[in-house]
Amino acid sequence: MKRLLLAPLTLLLVAADLPKEGQPGYLPSTPDLGKREAQCGTPENGPAVIITVDGLKDRAGNLKAELYPANDDDFLEDDNKLIMAGKTFRRVEVPVPKSGPVQLCVRIPGPGAYSFILLHDRDANRKFGLSTDGVGFAGNPKLGLSKPRAASARIEAGNGLTRVNVRMNYRRGLFNFGPIER
């Protein structure tokens, strides 16, 4: 019984410690969080991840890559919470090129393990459309009804450029996501 009472109290204390709007250290939520840190140079020598994208449904909209710590607690967690806690979060958003190979570069803080997701926002509205948009992960795990575990979307990045191929998945039927059959 004591544990049930302590858990909500602990959450309240943690939330009370976070800076509020108007206080020093407050970080407003924005779709641009993590973009400055993720921006690659020209040329980029690393440490960075070069993502090659396969299986796009079409050449419309934007691609968005998001890089997270490689653990289940932080993978796909709110970007604001990760940054406020001093954890790694990177975001790159680019228009889908009209032709040629599709690659994104994500600058990382250093060598190590990371997990990432790649989204194909076909209508460029910055919202995931379940029936229209695509998703891919490092490691190309088979997708089910829930998010994959961080370990299945994990990469080991080195000091230089780490190259990763991601196969996009789109909704097929009522409950399935998978690559487009060509």
Rank of each mutant, 00 (worst) to 15 (best):
Y114H: 03
N169Y: 05
R107P: 02
L67F: 07
Y68V: 07
G61A: 09
G160C: 12
G55P: 02
F175D: 09
F128D: 07
K57A: 14
G134N: 02
A85I: 09
N165D: 12
K147F: 11
N140Y: 09
L82G: 04
R172D: 10
S146V: 14
A150Y: 00
P111G: 08
L104V: 01
G110P: 10
L67E: 01
K147Q: 13
K98L: 14
D78E: 13
F137M: 01
L119Q: 03
E93G: 05
I155L: 13
S152Y: 03
E181L: 13
G110C: 12
V135A: 15
A113N: 08
I155V: 13
P69Q: 06
V94G: 12
G178N: 05
G100L: 09
N159Q: 08
K81D: 12
G100V: 08
A151M: 03
G112F: 04
G160Y: 04
N140R: 10
Q103E: 10
N169A: 09
N176P: 07
R172S: 14
T52P: 07
R90H: 13
L104H: 01
V53P: 05
R149T: 13
Y68C: 00
N159K: 07
E66N: 02
L76G: 06
A60T: 12
I51E: 01
E77I: 10
V53Y: 04
G86F: 09
T132M: 07
V49Q: 02
S115C: 06
R182Q: 15
K81T: 15
D133Y: 11
N165Q: 11
Q103T: 11
I83V: 11
G110K: 13
S131W: 10
N71Q: 11
K98F: 08
F137K: 00
G112M: 06
F175I: 07
D79G: 12
L56E: 02
Y68G: 00
D79I: 01
S99L: 10
G134M: 08
A65W: 03
G144E: 09
P111K: 10
E181T: 11
D74L: 05
R91I: 01
D73A: 15
P95N: 09
D54C: 11
A138K: 03
K98I: 14
S152W: 05
R91L: 04
K98N: 13
G112Y: 05
P69I: 05
N176W: 12
E156Q: 11
R167Q: 15
P69N: 07
T52R: 13
R163K: 15
S146L: 15
D74K: 01
D74Y: 06
P47G: 10
T162S: 15
F137G: 00
V166H: 02
A157P: 04
L56G: 03
D58W: 13
T132V: 10
R107D: 00
N80Q: 14
L130P: 02
I50N: 13
V94C: 13
N125Q: 09
P109S: 04
V49P: 00
R126H: 14
F137C: 00
G178C: 06
D123R: 13
I117Q: 08
T88E: 08
P95D: 10
G86Y: 05
M84F: 00
I155C: 11
